[in-house]
Amino acid sequence: MFEARLNAATTLKKVLDAIKDLLNEATFDCSDAGIQLQAMDNSHVSLVSLTLRSDGFDKFRCDRNLSMGMNLGSMSKILKCANNEDTVTMKAQDNADTVTFMFESQNHEKVSDYEMKLMNLDQEHLGIPETDYSCVVRMPAMEFARICRDLSQFGESVIICCTKEGVKFSASGDVGSANIKLAQTSSVDKEEEAVTIEMQEPVSLTFACRYLNAFTKATPLSNQVQLSMSADVPLVVEYRIPDLGHIRYYLAPKIEE
C-alpha cells in the first residue's frame, strides 16, 4: 500500500509544472524515504532529478517499494481538477496498474477521486557522481528566470561566465548581443534576495537557452536557485522545495568542435 498526502495541492501542481515541459512521461519511484524521479528529456540533453522526502508529506506510507510510470499530460489533466488549497492524496495498491488522486476541499464537503492508468516505462538511470564544482552561484530564482527569458530573445545559446567578482550571462545573434552582469551582493535585508558566489576557479560555459527556460518553470517552488558549474561538465540548476525536497536539472554544455 502506498499513500502520500499533501495539505495543499498547489505544491504538487508546481512540481508537475516544473517537469512537464521537459518530460512526456516519467517513473515515480516510491520508498519509505519518499518519492524520487530521474529522467532525461527525449533528446538526452538534460535530466530532471526530483526528490520529495517522506517527512515533507502530511501523511506518507509506503509498505513496499513501488515504481509508478505516469503520463505527465494525463497527470496534469487530473491536477487541473484540484483547487490549490485542496488536500491531495495519492494512493496505490502494491503491484497496482493504477494510481488514485483524491482531492478534498478545505471544508471537507467536496471529495473527488481520479484514477489514472500507470505505464511500464523503460528505466534509464544515469549515475551522477558527487562533484566539487568550480563555481556555485546562488541567486533569486525570479532573477534567473528573467535573465533566461530576456537573453533568449537574442540567441539560442547563453554563455555563463563566472569569476569571483560576479557572474555574467551573454547571448548574441542576428539582433545583436546582450550581456547581463550580476555582482555578489554586499548586504541584503532578505536572504532570498542575495547573490552569492563560491568560486574555486573561474568558468565559462555555453548552454542552450531553450532548456534553461524550461528549468525556470520551477521558479514558483523556491525563492533561490543554485547554479553549479565546472569546465566541460553539465550544469546543475537546483531549486530547493521548502520542507519537502528539491528538483535538480542537469544540462550538457555546448562545446566548440
Binding site: 538526452h44 549515475g127 545559446s157 550538457a252 568542435e257
Partner: peptide, 14 residues
Amino acid sequence: TPIQNDLQEFYSLV
C-alpha cells in the same frame, strides 16, 4: 558555433 553534447557523454547508464 559550439555543438550540443549529449548527457550520456558525461554520465553512464546504471
